[in-house]
């Protein structure tokens, strides 16, 4: 098994990137406990992560909501703007509607 397949940093990732482009690992956890791991740059907009996650799990990105520390993630947010740290978790909530019971 290659280094990359084991989820370990690859040679490319070991190269120190420029300031502001540091990559971090982020875990996205669904409401049923399933986890998907991403490695993204600090400056990458999280909308890309959201789209990639939705595509991966086969859901419409508009039908799920992404929470970081209980706060809804906006399209414009990046790991840097949210002060995210390596191995932080993003929670996925299903969109809800209600009118009566």
């Amino acid at each position: 098994m290659s280094q990359e397949e084991q989820g370990l940093p690859t040679q490319d990732n070991d190269v120190k990137p420029e300031e502001g482009n540091n990559t971090i690992n982020i875990k996205v956890v669904s409401s049923t406990g399933e986890e998907v791991f991403f490695k993204i740059k600090q400056s990458t907009k999280l909308i890309k992560l959201q789209s990639a996650y939705a595509s991966k799990v086969g859901k419409d990105v508009n039908s799920i909501r992404f929470l970081y520390d209980g706060v809804r993630i906006n399209d414009d947010d990046t790991p840097a703007t949210l002060d995210m740290e390596d191995n932080d978790t993003i929670d996925v909530m299903v969109e809800q509607v209600g009118g009566t019971s």
Binding site: Q6, G7, T32, G33, E35, F37, F38, T44, K56
Partner: peptide, 20 residues
């Protein structure tokens, strides 16, 4: 990118570069 059940140890495999 990969998915893991809650109980399985996390396996860090990352999305394709082009998708991100």
């Amino acid at each position: 990118v990969t998915t893991n059940s809650n109980k399985a140890p996390p396996r860090q495999i990352f999305p394709r570069r082009s998708s991100m």
